[in-house]
């Protein structure tokens, strides 16, 4: 059975791309998802993934109607993601996470409504392309998707290496960081905009379902039980990678989407983490 799978991988470009994407999405989860959970903003991930859907449908609409044939759906997805990030970042300038959640909620509704609205004006042949953003399939990736994922993962890794402390300081104490002379506002915007663009591009590549599955729950699970920033980052990578590999392997044995299985396992990791925390708590 294992030998069958290995020989299948070796001979199939589809599987090679899927495995490479699995590692890249785990890197994106470890860098982007982790800092969103630190910032108290895991909801931004779902918000941006849906905004990307709205942006992509706007792109398709502009192309289909001939208003702006150059307007690629990916461009729309990225613009909408940045819009959500800017709105959220503006709401959170004073450092309060609670206001940001409202901003995400409002832009989420706005872009999702726009997507559904535009669907009525699109030729029916284009609708599956919109749903592709939502469902996605790690077994149906093309080379552009892989390029997007490689670019996103590398940029995020670089950003985290350069500004990890700043992102952490902004998350803990934005006002104090500003008062000590750090440009906390600048790092706050940088962090949210980069995360949003990363989420939009990842959504385009693998679909929103997998994005929710591995960008939120593994980070939340690791943050419950691990005690340092670096160990949480590594923990997220491991949980995300394991969930997606299990999803891929599982999709061969039972008839189900790899993203759905990965999502179930990742969500389960959070529930397990909470139980572990409850048992090891010393009070």
């Amino acid at each position: 059975m294992i030998i069958d799978i290995i020989s299948l991988i070796a001979s199939s470009p589809v599987m090679q791309r899927a495995l490479l994407a699995t590692v890249l999405v785990a890197v994106i989860a470890a860098t982007s998802g982790t800092f969103m959970v630190f910032r108290g903003l895991s909801f931004l991930t779902s918000g941006v993934a849906h905004a990307a859907l709205g942006g992509a449908s706007l792109g398709l609409f502009l192309q289909a109607t001939g208003i702006a044939p150059w307007f690629d759906p990916i461009l729309g997805a990225v613009i909408f993601a940045v819009f959500v990030a800017l709105l959220t970042a503006y709401a959170g300038e004073r450092g309060v996470a609670q206001r940001m959640e409202v901003a995400v909620g409002v832009s989420f509704a706005l872009s999702m409504s726009l997507a559904v609205f535009l669907m009525y004006y699109l030729p029916p042949t284009m609708i599956p392309q919109i749903w592709g953003y939502l469902i996605g399939d790690i077994l149906l990736l093309d080379n552009l998707d892989i390029v997007l994922l490689v670019g996103t993962a590398l940029s995020l890794v670089l950003l985290v290496i350069l500004f990890k402390k700043e992102f952490v300081y902004v998350s803990i104490d934005m006002e104090g960081s500003t008062a000590h002379g750090m440009n906390a506002r600048g790092y706050h915007y940088l962090m949210l905009i980069f995360a949003a663009v990363a989420i939009a591009l990842t959504t385009k590549a693998v679909g929103a379902i997998l994005v929710y599955a591995v960008l939120v729950a593994p980070a939340a699970a690791s943050n419950e039980i691990l005690k340092t920033v670096n160990s949480v980052i590594i923990g997220v990578f491991v949980i995300a990678l394991a969930s997606m590999l299990a999803g891929l392997a599982g999709s061969f044995t039972i008839l189900a989407s790899p993203s759905a299985i990965a999502g179930l396992i990742a969500a389960l990791s959070y529930i397990i983490a909470i139980q572990i925390k409850r048992f090891t708590r010393k009070d």
Partner: peptide, 21 residues
Amino acid sequence: IRHLVRYVPQRDQIEHTVPMK
């Protein structure tokens, strides 16, 4: 001024979402 100052904000400004030592 910010270069000269060390500041302790009100406690509700501090988030506990990051595993810092």
